[in-house]
């Protein structure tokens, strides 16, 4: 390879760890005494949940940094973290439904955990849509950062709602409530998902930064947009 960037290494490590963790979770870890094999979904569902919330927390931090400094760099990283959070959040919801059907008996119910998670996914999708509709870079950076800061309130709510309100979803487990043989694959996959998420954020930020650069080049009126008449060489002379 010409150049192996640092994020590519992290991404590869993440992928390898996900394979190892999932292998242990699927074939070496025991089934659960009541849930049986279905419990193995935990090793992908729980890491996805943790890292989606973590990545959106990072987006919140980047949004503040973007507002604080006004630098496009933070705007780009915020976008990367937001989009990664949306992808993981959507995945989380689908995994949850697949786990819910055999255990709870339903694919979906409007309990507080499921509802706040859906709001989280939809809201941050909205932030991305908002960005695509605002053409002016500075205004786009401000609006989307404010949206991320305000909408972030839902993320701690997703985490804590099961402790504050009655819900169908159970409260957080802890090492005391999970068999030790199940903790190893869970931890490996949690770090795997973290590394993959860092890779996604880095790639997506790079993309956004390239777009921003393109915009700022295109923005000054020195160059006319493609397809318009260029009045630079008057014919009559």
């Amino acid at each position: 390879m010409k150049r192996l960037r640092w994020d590519a290494i992290i991404g590869l490590v993440g992928l390898l760890m996900l394979l190892v963790g999932s292998y242990i979770g699927l074939f070496a870890a025991p089934p659960e005494r009541h849930m049986g094999e279905v419990q193995r979904l935990m090793y992908v569902h729980v890491p996805t949940a943790w890292i989606s919330m973590l990545v959106l927390t990072a987006a919140f931090g980047f949004a503040i940094a973007s507002m604080w400094t006004g630098r496009p760099k933070w705007d780009a990283v915020m976008t990367g973290a937001t989009e990664t959070g949306v992808v993981l959040g959507a995945l989380l919801t689908v995994q949850g439904m697949i786990w819910a059907k055999p255990t709870w008996g339903v694919w979906w119910d409007w309990d507080v955990r499921l509802t706040t998670t859906l709001i989280m996914v939809l809201f941050f999708t909205g932030v991305l849509v908002l960005r695509s509709y605002v053409a002016e870079p500075e205004r786009r950076a401000t609006w989307s950062a404010v949206a991320v800061i305000v909408g972030y309130v839902d993320v701690p709510l997703v985490y804590f709602c099961v402790r504050w309100f009655r819900s169908l979803h159970q409260v957080q487990s802890s090492p005391e409530t999970v068999a030790s043989t199940m903790i190893t694959p869970l931890r490996i996959n949690a770090f795997a998902m973290l590394f993959l998420a860092i890779w996604f954020v880095a790639r997506r930020s790079r993309l956004e930064l390239a777009r921003l650069r393109r915009e700022s080049v295109a923005l000054p009126p020195r160059r006319a947009p493609r397809g318009t008449a260029v009045p630079e060489a008057p014919q009559e002379g």
Partner: peptide, 16 residues
């Protein structure tokens, strides 16, 4: 007509 089971936060291996 809608009966949902609520799992607790304990995950144990069989035989416990």
């Amino acid at each position: 007509r809608r009966l949902m089971v609520k799992h607790d936060n304990e995950y144990a291996a069989p035989g416990k």
